[in-house]
Design a protein around this nucleic acid. Structure first.
Lengths: 345, 345
DNA sequence: GTGAAAGCGCTAACAA
DNA sequence: TTGTTAGCGCTTTCAC
């Protein structure tokens, strides 16, 4: 067991001195009814007469009553909350921010809260008050992911999880199809030597893209030119890699960047090499973001529709929790391609 | 009252059919001890003998026991969770993403969870299971903010809240000082006509910057050239405003952009106007982000240290919850200035 | 249409 | 060192 002492502060709405939170019994007493009736009146259970309902509600309002959600949770055996976990390093990006809000939006529609689960304090873990979890791009090496899945919590992953335990549901983006379309688009624009600044295969996404690239190159008899980057590589490293790719083979006439933010980080390198983006060198990103529309020229990118992905994950989780959808369900998540001037000469 | 029926799914770790979650009594029974002893053993309360403790722990492990955090919360009158609310429109930015993770990190250090509170379903609001809330840049018009504060929840705001209810604590960034330093820096670099693409005064931050700008201009006998933008304005609007500023007064030789993302969005406009950034026109942003380091040239920006700001808010909230810090405490949050080529010729 | 009582799973006060 | 009892505040039988 990894239970440990949990120093905890003031209670639920108890921190305002002298303003103790009123509870159901006090309302019931003040309204001259029983606990049960008060509860039913306030929840509109349709059991009490309209007259008493109104009276109870009025009293509750006067006393400033608000039900204790923790007690309700305990009784109903449901927390009304789902957890959300993201790979630690990547969390800065616009992609994940949108993903998060997709999850939160969808959860709010179902009247659920969302709790952010981090990689902190892994050894002495606390338990989270959640009915299930959404795992964005789960890494096999992520101990938090392993523990959450190991604990038997219903989990929905965005993209595949390569570890032992199967999640209860999976939302899969159509990366291979869209990456093929991107490479076709580059070839159509005249590219004959497409290099790929790849992302590490620790994520399913990174691995899928590398596979798609290799396959496409084989089918099109193009020599693959890959350079893989570790997760969360700083700008300088990204730029070094881009330089290396361009120097290694001067015939390269198109560069596709997988890591989020890499495409724009690479711009100074390309400029320094004296190349003109969109002419000498086509440039594309595997992750779209608003900054790619501001660059000169704007950069073509795959639109991962992160907000919709997050919403889809949450929805699948709710469907599974409700028993409406069987465990092991996999849902496809459509993505898109935003072609911009960086690939259209 | 805004209580309403809450359809809720499966229970806490109850969703795996046939794998009912074991509870404390079952562990106690299996170990041949009382509920209390089992509880004490698992929590290392120092009440039980080492021998029985080990036995209980072994049994708990064998049965796959894990304590129900909801029950614990109810008993301890503390949720172990804080809420986090951000203005809805702004939530896409790198700034808020970092802020969020600052809060989450700090909370994790105190063994707390963080729940994201959105503006959704305001009419029929549910209650959130939180001991307190952090409000990032609270808008006076935000009904969620008003409700949270009105409910008497201990709240810490990042920047001032101009509404009725006082938050329990405030973390204040030193915007005026740093904005003055930025304008001084521009003047030092030769700027004589500094225009300001301002952010709406609905946030304390936006209002503070506008005030600082006016004051600085007065002190330096410079004619103020302000253009205020609504919150969350799309790129096109930002660009229209930038064009208007530049056209209105061709003598403008420096432009400061307040809204996050505006500085880079404005680049194409400046290019189209035939100006050279860093030479004809100095450009600076009031919010730093990684994309500003990739632009050509890199853009000078105020570093708001969002991660540290988030952590400071969470910490202040915990201090107040613990009663270590009085309500009404205001803490300063130091920020910085990243001077880059866009303002150094 | 309403009330009394049971109990969700846990911790804390009081005994032994 | 351990067990017994009494709740935390709520929803839900079951009885009237």
């Amino acid at each position: 067991m990894s239970c440990h002492d949990v120093p905890r502060y003031g209670g639920y709405r108890r921190s305002v001195p002298g303003s103790e939170q009123v509870n159901l019994v006090e309302v019931a007493k003040a309204a001259g009814v029983s606990k049960t009736t008060a509860s039913d009146a306030l929840r509109n259970s349709g059991r009490v007469s309209e007259q008493t309902r109104k009276r109870v509600v009025a009293v509750a309002n006067r006393l400033g009553y608000s039900p204790n959600p923790v007690a309700r949770s305990l009784r109903m055996a449901s927390t009304g909350t789902i957890g959300l976990h993201l790979p630690e390093i990547l969390t800065r990006s616009e992609y994940y921010m949108s993903f998060v809000f997709g999850v939160v939006d969808q959860a709010a529609k179902m009247d659920y809260d969302v709790t952010l689960l981090t990689a902190q304090h892994v050894p002495a873990r606390r338990l989270h008050r959640v009915d299930g979890v959404v795992l964005g791009d789960p890494l096999e090496t992520d101990t938090v992911v392993r523990e959450l899945l190991g604990a038997g919590l219903p989990a929905v992953t965005c993209e595949r999880y390569t570890g032992e335990v199967e999640p209860a549901g999976i939302v899969l983006s159509e990366h291979t199809a869209m990456f093929d379309r991107l490479l076709d688009h580059l070839a159509d624009s005249g590219a004959r030597a497409i290099a790929f600044l790849a992302s590490s295969t620790v994520t399913d996404w990174g691995a899928t893209l590398q596979g798609a690239y290799q396959n496409w190159c084989e089918r099109h008899e193009m020599r693959p030119r890959v350079r893989e980057m570790a997760f969360g590589s700083p700008t300088a490293v990204t730029q070094d890699n881009a330089r290396a790719v361009l120097n290694a083979d001067p015939s390269v006439d198109a560069l596709v960047c997988a890591p989020d933010g890499a495409a724009s980080a690479v711009l100074p390198v390309i400029r320094a090499a004296g190349k003109t983006i969109g002419a000498d060198l086509l440039l594309a990103s595997c992750v779209d973001s608003s900054e790619l529309t501001h660059t000169d020229p704007p950069i073509t990118a795959i639109d991962l529709r992160p907000r919709e992905a997050g919403a889809a994950c949450a929805q699948l989780l709710f469907d599974i929790l409700a028993g409406e959808t069987p465990r092991g369900t996999v849902r496809a998540h459509p993505i898109g391609l935003n072609a911009r001037r960086s690939t259209r000469g």
